[in-house]
């Protein structure tokens, strides 16, 4: 990305409608107008909390909603209709149903692997079985856990996670990294041991700048488990977005926030950052269709990677 041109991501109004509506409205239209325009479909979840089966049929608000098998059906249908799909999770995969109490997260990891997740970040509850347990369960996962601000040196998780991951889809380079919440006062000390929490804004800006400049990524996504928004000083996705420079999209978690459409926050340079979160319990699957302009005056230094 050259420094002179803007990397604004222009957010359209959320598509609405009850049905599946697999063909995205406007992004699809842009693709039709310019077949060379690269398009990417991001699917995302957060805080699904071991909700393998739908919520119990108890007359409650979420009764019979959610469920991993249904999520897979949805993902399969979208994959059948779209060429470039990535699937991401923003943490708190574990804890919430007896599946975690009895099987320690093994089934959650197996199912996410079957759904084809590309990456996830670590939520505070993913420590609930201890760090050794997370290492054990990661053997059932064929996707990486990304976290750029937990330093696991001297813990069982050392070398088992990555700061970031770069995916290439349809000629686009997508840089994805993870940020985790402060563990002190939230997770029992013995569960996170010597894990060092580092400032998410510092680390986020450092990693995003590296992904943008050295790795020449076209799109930079932060998987965050910081939480959407707090009244107090505690860092959250909105504060992170405002203090960021190179992050395009923040897919959040932790606060179980149901956003009906993403929030746009201007970053340090006045460029919009898109912040989203889709509740909890696997009740929703979020989707963003991103269409890059296909005209020859591309603004990115990674252009030679593109089929133009």
């Amino acid at each position: 990305m050259s420094t002179t041109t803007s990397r604004r991501f222009f957010l359209r109004k959320a598509a609405i409608g009850g049905g599946l509506l697999l063909v995205p409205g406007l992004a699809g239209a842009a693709g039709l107008l310019n077949p060379a325009a690269p398009r990417l479909t991001i699917l995302h979840t957060n805080d699904w909390h071991s909700r393998i089966e739908p919520f119990p049929d108890d007359g409650g608000r979420n009764a019979n909603q959610g469920g991993a098998v249904r999520r897979l059906r949805l993902i399969e249908q979208i994959r059948a209709a779209e060429p470039n799909v990535i699937l991401l999770d923003s943490g708190d995969i574990f804890q919430g149903t007896p599946y975690f109490n009895f099987f320690a997260g093994e089934l959650e990891m197996k199912l996410m692997t079957q759904m084809g997740y590309d990456a996830a970040t670590i939520g505070n509850h993913d420590f609930d079985g201890g760090m050794e347990n997370l290492v054990t369960q990661l053997k059932h996962a064929d996707f990486p856990m990304l976290t750029a601000n937990y330093d696991f040196k001297g813990t069982p998780l050392a070398g088992k996670t990555m700061d970031y991951q770069i995916l290439e889809r349809g000629g686009l380079k997508i840089g994805i990294f993870g940020l985790g919440i402060e563990l002190d006062g939230l997770v029992p000390d013995d569960l996170f041991g010597n894990t060092k929490y580092q400032d998410p804004i510092d680390r986020g800006n450092t990693v995003a700048a590296m992904l943008r400049r050295e790795k020449k990524c076209d799109l930079i996504i932060c998987l965050s488990h910081l939480g959407y928004k707090y009244r107090e000083d505690k860092v959250d996705d909105v504060k992170l977005a405002a203090a960021s420079k190179d992050i395009d999209i923040i897919l959040g978690g932790h606060t179980h926030t149901f956003l009906n459409e993403p929030t746009v926050v201007n970053n340090e340079q006045g460029d919009p950052v898109i912040v989203n979160q889709v509740g909890f319990g696997g009740l929703r699957l979020g989707r963003m269709d991103i269409t890059f302009p296909g005209n020859s005056k591309r603004r990115c230094v990674a252009c030679n990677n593109l089929r133009v």
Binding site: A15, N64, Q65, R70, R71, I274, N276, L283, R284, L285
Partner: peptide, 22 residues
């Protein structure tokens, strides 16, 4: 919306029993 800007079209799906129709 300058032409050089990528466009982002968001939406979400409710994961419900309707998905079991097919």
């Amino acid at each position: 919306a300058p032409l050089s800007s990528p466009t982002v079209q968001p939406r979400f799906y409710s994961v419900s029993d309707k998905l079991e129709a097919d």
